[in-house]
Design a protein around this nucleic acid. Structure first.
Lengths: 200, 200
DNA sequence: GCATTTATATATACCGGTAAGTATAATTAA
DNA sequence: TTAATTATACTTACCGGTATATATAAATGC
C-alpha cells in the first residue's frame, strides 16, 4: 500500500523518512562524507523538501542524534521493563547495548563517531552527545544503587567504561565475540560489587 | 639555527614536517574536514611539495596512522623499560595510555576516530588501525602471561576494553577524572587476576 | 675553483567535481 | 485555497589533484 505513495501530504511522515535516511547514511558512511542531496534521495524526496524540514545540514545532524538517543532510550526502557529484580535490570543494560550494537552494522557508537567528526566542544551536536552519555551513566548509577552495590557511583562508571570499550573494540575487530565476552565481564563486575553488600 | 632554514634540501625533514602537520590537523580537526592545502600550509610547504612526498591524500592518511602507531610504540616501550617486574610492566601500559591521551588534546583515540571516518573495512587505513589495536592487545596478553595471570587472554582482553572505554569516555566527558579512576580500575583487575595465581 | 647537473622546493594558475544552500515556477492533495 | 512537495537550475565555495615554469642548494665532473 505504501509502495508508490511518495506523494503523501503527511509532514510528519516525510520528516520520519528524512530522519531514517539520515540515520542510515550518517551512521553508515559518516556525516561529512554524506551530502544532503544523498539524504534527500535516500528519503525519496527533493533537496528542497529536506530544507523545508531542516533549515541546515547542522540541524539535520542534531535531529539525527536526538532521534538516535530517543530510539536508544525506548529500546533500553523496553528491555528494563522485562525485569523486576533491580539486579536483573542492571544486567539488562548490557543486553540492550549488545542488541543496539548488533542490530546496526558494526560501525560503533553513533555518538562517538559523530564526536570524532565534530571536534568543537561547543558545537550543538556535542550537547546531544553529552546528554546521551550522561543519560546512560545516570541510568546505570540509579540501577547500581537499587541493586545494592557498595559504591554505586564507582560501579556505574566502571560498567559505563566497559560498555564503551566493548562498543569500540567490537567495531574495530572482525571478531564479534568481544561483545559477548564483555557482557560476561560486565556481569562479573556487577556480581562482585553486589556480593559483599550489606543486605537490608 | 633552524629558524629561517625553510630551504633545506633534507627530504626527510620536510617529510617529518608534513607528518607533524598532518598529525595536528587530522587528529585535531578530523580527516575529511582537513584539506591537503591546509596540511601543506601548516607544514610550511607548498601543496606541490606535499604531493612530491605523498602520491595522494589517502597515502598521507595511512602514513599519518603508521607514524602515530610508531610514536605510540616508542612511548610504550620507553615506559615499559622503566620497570623490571612484569606486574609493574603490565600496570605501566595503563600509564602510557593515560600519558598518550593527556599529551594530545582530549580528542580520543586517533585510530578510533579515523575508523569513524572511513567505514569501508577494506580501506588501507583500516589495515593500519587493525594492526595498531592488535599490537596493543598482543602486548597486553604477553605481559599478562608474564605477570602470571590465571587466564592471560581473558585478562588482556578485559584490560584492553577498559583502556578503550576510558579513552572514549575521557574524550566525551569534560571530567578528566575518569582517566585516573579507570587506571585504578585497571589496577584492580590486574590485582585480582594475579592474586589467586598458582605461585611458581 | 668553477660550471653543470640533479634533486628538491616554490609560485601560481588551473581542472573537474562536489558540496551546501537558494531561487523560481509548476504541481499535487486535502 | 492553501500547505506541501516537485523539478530544475543556479550560486558560491572548496576540494583533490595537475600543469607549468622557476628557483635554489648541493653533489658531480673537469
Amino acid at each position: 500500500m505504501s509502495e508508490k505513495a511518495a506523494h503523501t501530504r503527511d509532514k510528519g511522515k516525510t520528516r520520519r523518512r528524512l530522519l531514517a535516511a539520515a540515520r542510515e547514511l550518517f551512521y553508515g558512511d559518516g556525516i561529512h562524507a554524506t551530502g544532503v542531496s544523498a539524504v534527500a534521495e535516500r528519503a525519496g524526496v527533493t533537496k528542497m523538501t529536506l530544507y523545508a524540514h531542516f533549515p541546515s545540514k547542522g540541524d539535520l545532524v542534531t535531529a539525527y542524534l536526538e532521534d538516535s538517543d530517543r530510539r536508544w532510550q525506548e529500546l533500553l526502557e523496553e528491555k528494563l521493563s522485562g525485569h523486576e529484580d533491580p539486579l536483573d535490570k542492571l544486567l539488562a543494560v548490557c543486553d540492550a547495548y549488545r542488541e543496539y550494537f548488533t542490530t546496526r552494522e558494526m560501525r560503533g557508537c553513533a555518538f562517538v563517531n559523530c564526536a570524532a567528526e565534530f571536534p568543537d566542544p561547543d558545537h550543538p551536536a556535542r550537547r546531544v552527545i553529552q546528554q546521551h552519555k550522561a543519560g546512560v551513566r545516570e541510568r546505570l548509577r540509579g540501577l547500581a544503587a537499587e541493586a545494592g552495590a557498595e559504591n554505586p557511583a564507582t560501579l556505574a562508571e566502571r560498567l559505563f567504561v566497559v560498555l564503551e570499550g566493548a562498543y569500540v573494540a567490537g567495531a574495530l575487530e572482525v571478531d564479534r565475540g568481544v561483545l559477548d565476552r564483555s557482557c560476561a565481564f560486565f556481569a562479573d563486575l556487577v556480581q562482585s560489587a553486589v556480593r559483599n553488600q550489606t543486605r537490608s
